[in-house]
Amino acid sequence: MTTKIPSDETLTETGLEASGKGRVLIIACGALAREILALVRLNRWDHVDLQCLPAILHNHPDRITDAVREAVTRHREEYATIRVAYADCGTGGQLQEACAQMGVEMIAGPHCYSFFEGNEVFSGRAEDEFTAFYLTDFLARQFEAFVWRPLGLDRYPQLRDTYFGHYEKLVYLAQTDDPALTETARDCARRLGLAFERRATGYGDLATTLANWADG
């Protein structure tokens, strides 16, 4: 399967339509499109197709479960297997419940931050790091669309400390080694008034989960 990666803006607002080829469909958050397509290409998983929901659902977790349910239902007949590349993502267990009802697997963990770093490592740090604000590659590139504008900081910069006053640092969980993107993430930290830390994670549990799904 060769799928052209849409722009980040398209992945944020629209997502990505499945190509209709392959027997395994992964229904994913648009924020994971690049990483999943990279793994598909790298591993030559020609039997794996990808459908992405708009990444901006990240900011509206209450809408994720219904959107995933609808996508699974719509594609059920077209593929032998469907998997859901979302973690809990703020749905408070509702996505897990819906996936269990539909008989489809999803990614373990609370968020993409967690499975990129590795769920075990992430939860091990939780006690000491609850004042950290996380960005991934995608979120660093889409900082304006996911953080700055929705929080109204473009219009009301005085609200910054209302949102971020209790945070201490911004941790950039880097999937790739991209110095320019690291500088973008560092600038995000500066704008939020937070210390900056870069942590190279690669694809973490996303890679192992997808490998299991592609084999199964």
Binding site: P150, L151, G152
Partner: peptide, 8 residues
């Protein structure tokens, strides 16, 4: 209305 306006 959205969160920023409510906060103001």
């Amino acid at each position: 209305l959205f969160v920023p306006e409510v906060l103001l």
